[in-house]
Simulated assay, not measured.
Amino acid sequence: MTFVVRAATEADLPHLYEMAKLTGGGFTNLPPDRTALSAKLARSREAFARDGGPMTDELFVLVLENTATREVRGTCQLFTMVGQQHPFYSYRIGTLTQHSRELDRTFRAEMLTLTTDLEGSSEVGGLFLHPGERAGGLGLLLARARYLFIRAHRARFAPRILAELRGIIDEAGGSPFWDGLAGRFFGMNFQAADEFNAINGHQFIADLMPKHPVYTAMLSDSARAAIGLPHPSGRAAMRMLENEGFAFENYVDIFDGGPTMTARTDNVRSIREARESRVVAIDSDGGAQALVAAGTLADFRCAYGEVRRCGDGVILSGACTEALGIGEDAAVTHIARW
């Protein structure tokens, strides 16, 4: 069974909609709303169709396809430059230190400050793998394919890149962080706010969110405990990001308090260590397990394969070249599987 990561098309809408209904909430980039998903696919189609030109605010949607059944079993998204149409808000965790000479005591207060520091960055997000496929390294294939896509289109992406991880969501689908902070100002529960944001954007945050720093000591224990923690289902994703060189630098999501991971784009491991080669032969005599990508824009495809060095070129397994739709002398980008 072979899987390939490719550009999404409008025909993938039914599959994306069915997967969106499985996310469990708090997944802004994959809302269970056909109209919103259709708009994403239309925006993605425009991005794939644009060849060259200056860097601008674009969205690329990729999907994971089972090549035997043609079913879409996962998806991910790349945003080239966030915060261009609407402000990109985060909370930055900081500390205010004050000293009382009379009491001879020093007080350190943790604060959350609303910021647009990350505006202009690229973003990887919207990664979701169907629950029935969470084995065999498919999540890693989907995640790392994004970086090979960025490498192939480096001029379309910013110097800095971020990834927002979903925060703590309780069994009822609520967010302790939202309930303890923003929910008090918006008059709506987390699920309603999250759905509104996914479909309409978050300009309403700019309109209603208090601009003054918030002392975390004033929050409930449950809200404070959720700051900077990923949802249990996102812990593996956080480890994958850390392996790629992303780090948590005290930025958290304004909705659920989940961590925002950041990196310099050129320092992301899969972008930095990938290599370009020509396919000099195709056989099934084995080789090192690797991610292999070919094509650009709407023709981009990425799959697992066996790779052997042969001079300046590589020998690929037949299953891999078939999944990528390439033959001998094709140009590929490859990086070891880990």
Results as ranks from 00 to 15, higher is better:
R160D: 04
R160I: 05
R160N: 08
I161V: 11
A163S: 06
L165F: 11
R166I: 01
R166M: 03
I168K: 01
I169T: 05
A172T: 15
G173H: 14
G173S: 12
G174T: 12
S175M: 07
F177S: 04
F177T: 02
D179H: 09
D179I: 14
G180C: 06
L181I: 01
L181K: 00
R184S: 15
R184I: 12
F185I: 09
F185Q: 03
F186A: 08
G187S: 04
N189F: 05
F190L: 14
Q191R: 14
Q191D: 08
Q191N: 13
Q191I: 10
A192L: 09
A192T: 06
A193H: 11
E195H: 14
E195W: 13
E195I: 11
E195Y: 10
F196V: 04
A198C: 06
I199P: 02
N200R: 15
N200L: 06
H202D: 06
H202T: 15
Q203S: 10
F204C: 15
F204A: 12
I205S: 07
D207K: 08
D207F: 08
M209S: 12
M209I: 14
P210S: 08
P210D: 06
K211A: 09
K211T: 14
P213W: 08
P213F: 08
V214A: 11
V214R: 07
T216Q: 02
T216L: 04
M218N: 08
M218H: 04
M218K: 05
L219P: 00
L219H: 02
L219A: 03
S222H: 06
S222A: 13
S222N: 09
R224D: 00
G228A: 06
G228C: 10
L229R: 04
P230C: 02
H231S: 08
P232N: 10
P232S: 13
A236Y: 02
A236P: 01
A237F: 10
M238V: 02
M240N: 07
M240Y: 07
L241G: 02
E242I: 02
E244H: 06
E244P: 01
F246H: 07
F246M: 12
A247H: 06
A247D: 15
